[in-house]
Amino acid sequence: MTQSGKEAFRPEYSLLGQLRTQVSQVPIIGFTATLTDDQEAKVKRSLFQYKDDKPLKIIKVDDLRDNLCFEVQIFQGQHRSRNLASLLNNDPKKKSLVYFDSIVVLRSVQEELLKLRPDLKIEAYYSTLRAEHKQDTMNEFKDGKINVLLATEAAGMGCDIPDVAHVIQYE
């Protein structure tokens, strides 16, 4: 495959779209340190956007550090909260931040985790909470008084906490 007389960058990537049509239940996430916004849009259009599909999530990594690790684990069925509980740190000094797409799912998982992991201080953070409560919760998480913060994207904006050991995307 060529582009303007040069060999295309990673031509095998173009085959991912074919894979996705054959195995549509497999989640796909993209990591990049080099794609421009135009290139990202082209990748999404050409490889991963199908009419009934969720959009591809692309994470831009400016500088992949040695202390970062990306891992995908798929938990299915009614024991997903139990599987999440096993991922959380056993060291109460380490923090975990778990992101959810839905407040309803977040609250359900919170209820289950409080039963499964009474050893951890677990709190929720989402947009419809009172501003004062959100501020107090974020401060307690930063100060290490909360071990696990279950949050929607409302916690993502301006969240700069360098000592978080795990960041988990639930679902």
Rank of each mutant, 00 (worst) to 15 (best):
L116S: 07
L87W: 10
V72E: 05
L47K: 08
H79C: 08
N67R: 08
V61K: 00
I59G: 08
S96Q: 10
L113C: 13
I103Q: 02
E71W: 01
N83H: 15
R82P: 00
K95I: 13
Q49I: 03
Q73S: 07
Y99G: 02
N67A: 12
I74T: 12
R107P: 01
D63Q: 06
D63F: 06
E71V: 06
F48E: 05
R65G: 11
D91Y: 00
K57D: 13
C69G: 06
L116N: 05
Q73N: 10
K51P: 01
D52V: 04
K95D: 14
L56G: 01
K60H: 15
L68R: 14
F70D: 04
R80G: 03
R65M: 14
N83S: 13
N89K: 00
D62N: 11
I58W: 08
Y50D: 02
Q76G: 15
K60I: 07
L68W: 06
D52P: 04
S46Q: 15
L97A: 14
K95L: 13
D52K: 09
K57S: 09
L56S: 03
I58P: 08
Q73I: 05
D53Q: 05
D66M: 07
L97V: 06
S96F: 12
K60E: 11
R117M: 04
Y50P: 02
N89W: 00
L87P: 07
H79S: 10
Y99W: 05
L88M: 04
L106Y: 03
N90T: 14
V109T: 02
D91I: 03
I103G: 00
F70H: 09
L87A: 07
L87T: 05
Q78T: 12
A85K: 01
D63H: 09
